[in-house]
Design a binder for these strands. Structure first.
Length: 932
RNA sequence: GGGCGCUUAGCUCAGUUGGAAGAGUGCUUCGUUUGCAACGAAGAUGCCGGGGGUUCAAAUCCCCCAGCGUCCA
C-alpha cells in the first residue's frame, strides 16, 4: 500500500474540502470550495505583491524579522512548546554535512534515530540555515536566498512507550491557528497540499502549506524507515513504521516577512537598507531614468512570473529571457531585451550582495575560516561572488565596508562567536587573495588568447573551462579581459554556463567512495573499558570471550581491558596478555580487539606498557592545552581540524587564516606551559548529549562528531573543554613541559603544530643539543657562533665558485688564443681538432671562444674523456665555414667511436657516449673527413 | 575528499621539437639631468621547489614528495 489521504478531523470540522489540483495533479485541502489549483502551480501566481497577506507588521528589515520570529516562537510557547536556542550554522556535530541546512539537521542523527533524547519535547526553534544549491538564482529570481531562518516546531513521539505529544491533526491545527489567528491571513487563501516526503532512509506523510502562491511552511510526519519487508511503498522503496514518530516542520521566516511586506522581491522585505544603499552607490536611479519604466511594476510582474515559471537552474538564460519578455508583454509591460538586461542585471547583484553578506556573517561569525577545501571553500566562494558582483557593479567599496554596513543594519553582532575585528580581518585577507588571483589570472588569460585570431567571436570552450577551473577566472570575466585587450568581437556562447555546471556535476559523480574495512565477529558483549576508571591501572585479570586466527596472528576479545584502542587520534596501547605481546588494539562497535602472536583462552592476565601509555597521555593532554592556548591567543575561529598523538611527538591541526610565525608559536608554547602549572586537576565527566550541548556548546566536538548518546568530557580548568574518548592526566603538571617544535601548512586555512611533551620533550631537546654540538665540531667553533659561521662559509663557497669559473674561462682563453698547433687552415677556414680535459660547461666555453670571431671562420671539433666521452662540434655562424659544413652531420659521422649519439643545431652540435677511449679515433676521423 | 594548474634572479614573469639560463623591474657604480615613476653606460645577483628515473645530454619528458593556487563535492 502507499500513503493514503491526509484525512484529518480538523479539516472536516472546519469546512475544508479535498480536491485534486488541475495543474499538478496533487491532492490538496482548502476552505475555498471553488479552488481548482493547489496554490503552488503554474496557474497560481503571487497575490501578495503590493498587497500584504499578513497584517500588523509595518516594519521592514531586521525589525520585521525580529518581530515575526518572536510572534512565531511566542505562539508555540503558548501552546506548551519549549523554546530552544538556535544551534551553530556549522554542523560540527555531524560528519556528513558542513552546514546546517534545516532545523531538523540539528537533531540528526542521534535524536532522530532515538539514541539521544531531544533537548525539549515538544520544542520550537528558529534555526539559521544555509543552502548553496541555488546560489546562482539568488538575486535573479526575486525569492531565492542562500541563508534563511527556518522556524519550526518539532515533536518526538514514542507511541510504544506511551509517550505521544501530538500528531498530524494537532500539528495542522497549530499551523492553521498561527496563520489565521496570530498572523491574520485570510483563511480562504490557505491550502494544504499532500506531498509525501522521503529521504535519507526515512519517509512519511507531509503537507505543504501554501498562501498567496507562496509556500510558507512544510509539515512532515516522519514515521517510516526503509525496510525491504515493509508494507508501505513510496517512490518504489518499501518502508515500515518506526518506534519514533517525528514531526518536522519548516516555516520560512524570510518568506513570512515578504508576505507581510508585500514588496516586489523578498530582498526588499528583509534587507531594505542594504538594497537602497547599494542602489545609491551604483547610481541605479540614473540607469532607470534612461529606460522610462515603472520599476516596481516591472519587478512585481517579474517576481510573479518567475515564481510560477519553475525555472531550472542552469537553463539557457537568453532563451529564458525571451520567454520572460513575451510573458511580460502579455501583462502590459513592454520591454526589450537590452533594457531588461540593463535593469535586471545590476539589480540582481544589488539583491544578492546582502544575502551573501548575511550568509558570511553566519558562517564566519561561527568561526569558519575560508579555505580552498571543505566548508571553508563555501565561504570563499561566497566572498568571491560578492567581490565579483561588486566589481561588475563598479562599486568603489571594500568588502569590509560592505560587511560593516551589513552588521549595522542586518545582523545582531552578539550572535557572532568570532570577534568583529577577526571577522573583518578575514574578509580583508580574502579580498587581497582575490586581487592577487585576478592579477595573475589576467596574465594567464592574455597568454592563452595569444593564438586566437583578433576577429574571433568565441573563445574555445577548452580555454574557458581551464581558466575557470584552474585559475578561478569566471567565463564572463575572461570575456571582459579579452574585449579590453583587443578581441572586441568575442562574446559568451549561450548555454556555456550550463555546460560548465554539467561538467562539474559529472566530475563529482565519478569521484569514487571508499568503504571502511570491518571484521566479521560473532555477537559479543561490549568490552568494559577499565582505562576510563583508572588511567594508571597496569594489570588485571580478564575472561577471553573470543580468540581466532588471522594470518600469523590471533585476535582476542576480552570481557574487560585496560589497553586503550586506537581512536580519537591517540595511538593504541601496548602490553601483554598472559605474557604474550600485544601488537595492535582496535575498537569496532564498542568491542575491543587485541592482536597477539599466539592463542589464549580462559582467564588471562593483562598487563599495560605504562611508559608508552604515559607518553601518549602526556601528548594527548598537551594537545588539548595547546589547542586551548591557540584559541585564546589567535581567536575563536581556531578549531581542531585533526590530531594525532604518538610516542615520539604529537601533532595538532588548527583552523587559522594565516601562517604562524615562530613568535606566534613561542606565545602559544608559553601560555601552554603556564596552564600546565596553574591547573591543578583536570575534570573528567560523562554527560548525556543534550546536557553536554547545553552546558558547553558545540566547540566540544573538536575531535569529531559525537558517536553515541553519552559523551565523555575533559575539562582543563577554564582553559579548554572537549568531548574526548582518550586517556588523560588527572594532574596536568605531571606532563612536565610542552614544546611546540614547528608549524607547517596542511591545507589552506589549516596549520599543523608539532608538539612534544613530557619525556619526549626532554628527548627532543637532547637530540637538538647533540645536532648542534656535532655541527659546531665540524667547524671547530662554539655553538653560539654556528649561524654566523655557517653563513660566512656559504658566502665564501659561492664567491669561490664564481672565482673558479672565471679562472676556467681565463684558462680557456689562453689555451685557444694564438696559433695552436692543432689548428689547420684550408681555403680560408680554420679547422681545430682538440682533445681537452674538462666537463661539458668548460668545453662549451672553449668552442665559444674559438668560433666567436667572424673574421676567423672556424670549424671546431673538441672531445673530452669525461663522463663516458663528450664531443662538441661548433662552426662560426654566418661565415663561409657555416655555409660549407654542418655541425650535426659531422658529429653524427664520428660519434659511433664513443658508442653514443647527439645532436643540435647546424652550427653547434654536442654529443656523448659510453666509450671514452674512442675520443682519439673520433677526432682523427673528423680530421680525415674534413681535410681530405 | 576529487579534478586541474603552478614552483626559474630580491620582485613580476618569458624560456618553442630535450642541446650555451633570459627579459622587465629593482639593486651597485659612473655619467647626464636635478619639476617628472627622467636618460645613458657598465656591473652584480640562479642547487630552474626537493628526490628518483629515462637519455650521450633534462629547467624542459616520466614517477614520487612538498609547498602554493584554483574549481567542484
Amino acid at each position: 500500500m502507499s500513503l493514503g489521504a491526509v484525512d484529518l478531523p480538523y479539516f472536516s470540522e472546519n469546512g475544508f474540502r479535498r480536491a485534486q489540483c488541475s495543474a499538478t495533479g496533487l491532492w490538496f485541502w482548502s476552505r475555498d470550495v471553488a479552488r481548482k489549483t493547489c496554490g503552488d502551480s503554474q496557474e497560481d501566481e503571487y497575490t501578495f505583491i503590493g498587497n500584504p497577506l499578513i497584517s500588523g507588521f509595518p516594519e521592514t528589515g531586521s525589525a520585521l524579522k525580529d518581530k515575526m520570529r518572536e510572534t512565531f516562537l511566542n505562539f508555540f510557547e503558548q501552546q506548551d512548546h519549549t523554546r530552544v536556542e538556535p544551534y551553530s550554522i556549522l554542523a560540527r556535530w555531524r560528519d556528513d554535512i558542513h552546514l546546517t541546512i534545516a532545523s531538523i539537521a540539528v537533531f540528526q542523527p542521534h535524536v532522530t534515530s532515538g539514541t539521544v533524547p531531544p533537548p525539549a519535547n515538544p520544542l520550537t526553534i528558529s534555526q539559521p540555515c544555509i543552502r548553496l544549491t541555488d546560489v546562482d538564482a539568488v538575486g535573479a529570481s526575486g525569492r531565492h536566498l542562500t541563508t534563511f531562518e527556518m522556524m519550526a516546531h518539532h515533536v518526538f513521539n514514542r507511541p510504544k512507550d506511551g509517550e505521544v505529544y501530538y500528531w498530524m491533526n494537532e500539528c495542522v491545527e497549530f499551523c492553521d491557528h498561527l496563520f489565521v489567528d496570530a498572523l491574520g491571513i485570510d483563511a480562504n487563501e490557505i491550502t494544504y497540499v499532500e506531498n509525501p516526503w522521503s529521504g535519507g532512509g526515512n519517509a512519511g506523510a507531509a503537507v505543504e502549506v501554501i498562501v498567496g502562491g507562496l509556500e510558507l511552511a512544510t509539515l512532515v510526519f516522519m514515521n517510516l524507515q526503509e525496510d525491504e519487508d515493509g508494507g508501505v511503498e513510496i517512490k518504489g522503496i518499501k518502508y515500515s513504521e518506526m518506534d519514533l514518530q517525528i514531526i518536522d516542520t519548516g516555516y520560512g521566516l524570510e518568506r513570512f516577512c515578504w508576505a507581510a511586506a508585500g514588496t516586489p522581491t523578498i530582498y526588499e522585505a528583509i534587507y531594505p537598507e542594504s538594497v537602497s544603499w547599494l542602489k545609491e552607490l551604483t547610481g541605479f536611479s540614473q540607469i532607470l531614468e534612461s529606460t522610462n519604466i515603472n520599476l516596481d511594476e516591472l519587478l512585481g510582474q517579474m517576481s510573479r512570473l518567475l515564481g510560477i515559471m519553475n525555472i531550472e537552474i542552469g537553463s539557457d538564460e537568453s532563451s529564458l529571457r525571451k520567454v520572460l519578455i513575451a510573458r511580460l508583454a502579455e501583462r502590459g509591460v513592454e520591454i526589450d531585451e537590452q533594457t531588461l538586461l540593463s535593469v535586471s542585471q545590476p539589480l540582481s547583484r544589488i539583491y544578492a550582495i546582502p544575502d551573501h553578506m548575511h550568509a558570511l556573517c553566519n558562517m564566519l561569525g561561527d568561526g569558519l575560516v575560508p579555505s580552498n577545501a571543505k566548508a571553508g571553500y563555501l565561504a570563499r566562494m561566497l566572498i568571491r561572488r560578492v567581490l565579483r558582483m561588486r566589481d561588475e557593479l563598479g562599486l568603489q567599496v571594500s568588502i569590509c565596508e560592505l560587511a560593516e554596513h551589513h552588521l549595522e543594519f542586518n545582523y545582531d553582532e552578539s550572535r557572532m562567536k568570532q570577534t568583529r575585528a577577526g571577522f573583518l580581518q578575514i574578509l580583508q585577507l580574502e579580498e587581497e587573495r582575490y586581487s592577487v588571483m585576478l592579477r595573475k589570472g589576467e596574465n594567464v588569460v592574455k597568454g592563452m588568447l595569444k593564438s586566437l585570431p583578433i576577429d574571433a567571436v568565441e573563445i574555445p570552450d577548452e580555454i574557458l573551462f581551464t581558466l575557470n577551473d584552474t585559475h578561478g577566472m569566471a567565463p564572463a570575466l575572461v570575456i571582459g579581459i579579452a574585449k579590453s585587450s583587443g578581441w572586441s568581437e568575442v562574446s559568451l556562447r549561450g548555454g556555456f554556463t550550463a555546460e560548465l555546471a554539467q561538467r562539474h556535476a559529472s566530475q563529482a559523480k565519478q569521484a569514487a567512495k571508499s568503504t571502511a574495512k570491518g571484521r566479521v565477529l560473532p555477537q559479543l558483549p561490549t568490552t568494559k573499558k577499565l582505562y576510563y576508571d583508572d588511567v594508571w591501572m597496569t594489570n588485571h585479570n580478564a575472561e577471553v570471550l573470543h580468540c581466532s586466527q588471522e594470518g600469523d596472528d590471533w585476535i582476542v576479545v576480552l570481557n574487560q581491558t585496560c589497553l586503550y584502542p586506537e581512536g580519537g587520534g591517540q595511538a593504541f596501547d601496548l602490553g601483554t596478555i598472559d605474557g604474550i605481546e600485544v601488537k595492535d588494539v582496535q575498537i569496532e562497535n564498542d568491542i575491543i580487539i587485541h592482536t597477539i602472536t599466539s592463542k589464549v583462552s580462559g582467564n588471562v592476565e593483562v598487563e599495560l606498557d605504562i611508559s608508552r601509555r604515559r607518553q601518549l597521555m602526556d601528548h594527548h593532554t598537551a594537545v588539548h592545552i595547546v589547542g586551548g592556548a591557540a584559541r585564546t591567543l589567535l581567536g575563536p575561529h581556531v578549531y581542531q581540524a585533526g590530531a594525532n598523538k604518538n610516542t615520539d611527538s604529537a601533532r595538532l591541526d588548527i583552523t587559522h587564516h594565516s601562517r604562524l610565525s615562530r613568535d606566534d608559536l613561542n606565545e602559544i608554547e608559553k601560555l601552554s606551559n603556564q596552564v600546565l602549572q596553574q591547573t591543578q586537576t583536570t575534570e573528567k565527566m560523562e554527560l548525556p548529549r543534550a546536557q553536554a550541548d547545553k552546558e558547553f556548546g558545540f566547540d566540544l566536538y573538536q575531535g569529531g562528531a559525537p558517536k553515541g548518546g553519552d559523551v565523555r568530557i575533559l575539562k582543563i580548568g577554564e582553559h579548554d573543554v572537549q568531548a574526548c574518548g582518550g586517556t588523560h592526566h588527572d594532574e596536568p603538571a605531571k606532563i612536565g613541559s610542552i614544546r611546540i617544535i614547528r608549524s607547517s601548512a596542511v591545507q589552506d586555512g589549516v596549520e599543523r603544530l608539532t608538539i612534544v611533551a613530557g619525556a619526549a620533550a626532554l628527548e627532543h631537546s637532547r637530540r637538538q643539543a647533540e645536532l648542534l654540538s656535532e655541527a659546531s665540531e665540524v667547524f671547530g667553533i662554539d655553538e653560539n657562533d654556528l649561524p654566523r659561521t655557517a653563513s660566512r662559509f656559504f658566502e665564501e663557497w659561492k664567491t669561490q665558485r664564481k672565482r673558479i669559473e672565471s679562472l676556467e674561462a681565463e684558462v680557456t682563453r689562453l689555451k685557444t688564443e694564438g696559433g695552436s698547433d692543432s689548428a689547420t687552415e684550408v681555403d680560408g677556414i680554420r679547422y681545430v681538432f682538440l682533445e681537452v680535459d674538462g666537463d661539458n660547461k668548460q668545453m662549451v666555453a672553449m668552442v665559444g671562444e674559438l668560433t666567436r670571431d667572424s673574421d676567423k671562420p672556424t670549424v671546431a671539433v673538441i672531445g673530452s674523456r669525461e663522463g663516458g666521452g663528450k664531443l662538441l662540434v661548433a662552426i662560426t655562424e654566418n661565415s663561409i665555414a657555416s655555409q660549407k659544413h654542418d655541425a650535426n652531420a659531422i658529429l653524427k659521422a664520428i660519434s659511433h667511436h664513443i658508442q653514443g649519439g647527439g645532436g643540435g643545431r647546424p652550427t653547434f652540435a654536442q654529443g656523448g657516449g659510453s666509450k671514452p677511449d674512442g675520443i682519439e679515433a673520433a677526432l682523427e676521423q673528423a680530421r680525415q673527413d674534413l681535410l681530405n
